[in-house]
């Protein structure tokens, strides 16, 4: 497809996307669901570039999410800072955490890396539950409404928060697509697909991994930032496995390295949980099973099932005699 047409198409899609809650009736529940979908999608996009592009499983992204949320809570409740400064604080904080984690795990590979990140998440949950500075098991309450007084903007409910959530989502998607086109993104792919080749062509895998981490963590943390405003309080449950499983499922369920994959994945899961729920425990079983079945039986995700149908169309439209490049 022509890149000009593509840009126009994306712009059109972006505009239409903003009106999705209105098109769906505009009720409070719809806005609440849409805001959460946007937030969780942003959270997942952070993980997406680590799993899909770098090819490593970080299980510490719930920690990045929590760092974003807790920093925002602390800065806005105790220091009285507004959303812009709390976002800056959250990003700064998560960069420190990601750098520390990146430094510790620099030499580790594959499952030891994943195990350490998982352990970090579990230990972080213990700390959040027990450390009074973070509110202990009560968490931090009284986070003020999202307000940009210099713009005269104040979000008192989900409907009013939606523009912010949607903007954040667009920024995250843009960042991921820019990352994939960037030198770093291509180097990450190279490290992922053929580490030895990457090394011989002058790429330092450890540095690439650290850099990808530093790009990824702020994306997920910014989701935590908005989540804090949306919920108005933050407790250790932001470190629950639910968020980890949600992120992972969202990243893989549609198919890896699809730009809109994580968004659609989160949307599917949230719609099921909000509107077709079978109760918390059954929903857990459903979410976990989707994750398992996708990975075990659909290596290219749901989209991989649908894609051959799409190919049928393209094939028919292709003039005879022109070879179709093989889909690898």
């Amino acid at each position: 497809m022509n890149s000009g047409i593509k840009t126009v198409l994306f712009a059109a899609l972006a505009v239409i996307g903003f009106f999705v809650p209105t098109l769906l009736g505009g009720s409070g529940a719809v806005y609440a669901a849409c805001v959460l979908i946007a937030i969780f999608a942003v959270m997942s996009y952070g993980l997406d570039i680590v799993v899909s592009d770098l090819g490593e499983v970080s299980l510490a992204h719930t920690v990045f999410f929590a760092v974003g949320a807790y920093t925002t809570a602390l800065l806005s409740v105790s220091a009285g800072l507004g959303p812009v400064l709390s976002l800056a604080g959250a990003i700064l904080m998560v960069l420190l955490v990601a750098a520390a984690l990146g430094f510790v795990t620099l030499q580790l590979r594959e499952f030891v890396f994943s195990l350490v990140t998982y352990a970090v998440a579990v230990v972080a949950a213990t700390i959040a539950q027990n450390w009074d500075f973070l509110g202990g098991s009560d968490g931090l309450r009284g986070i003020p409404a999202f307000e940009l007084s210099w713009l005269g903007f104040k979000a008192r409910n989900d409907q009013e928060l939606w523009p912010v959530a949607y903007l954040l989502l667009l920024v995250a998607i843009y960042l991921v697509s820019a990352f994939r086109r960037s030198k770093l993104g291509q180097a990450a792919m190279m490290v992922h697909l053929n580490q030895r080749l990457a090394v011989t062509s002058g790429v330092d895998p450890q540095r690439i991994r650290l850099q990808v981490f530093l790009v990824s963590a702020p994306i997920t943390a910014s989701a935590g930032w908005l989540y804090a405003y949306q919920r108005a309080y933050i407790s250790a449950d932001v470190l629950e496995t639910y968020f980890l499983i949600l992120m992972l499922t969202a990243v893989v369920v549609m198919g890896r390295r699809l730009l809109l994959g994580p968004l659609l994945g989160v949307a599917l899961i949230q719609i099921q949980e909000k509107f077709f729920s079978f109760g918390g425990y059954v929903d857990k079983i459903i979410l976990g099973s989707v994750l398992i079945l996708t990975l075990a039986f659909l290596p290219n995700g749901l989209f991989g099932v649908v894609a051959p149908l799409r190919n049928l169309f393209i094939r028919r439209a292709t003039p005879v005699g022109k070879t179709i490049p093989e889909r690898s």
């Binding site: 490593e56 594959e110 496995t241 992972l248 893989v252 918390g280 059954v282 929903d283 976990g288 075990a296």
Partner: peptide
């Protein structure tokens, strides 16, 4: 290994539920 790790995590989650 990457998929295996995630799948086992998913199994843990299902077992919990």
């Amino acid at each position: 290994l990457v998929s295996i790790m995630i799948v086992t995590l998913g199994f843990g989650y299902v077992l919990h539920g």
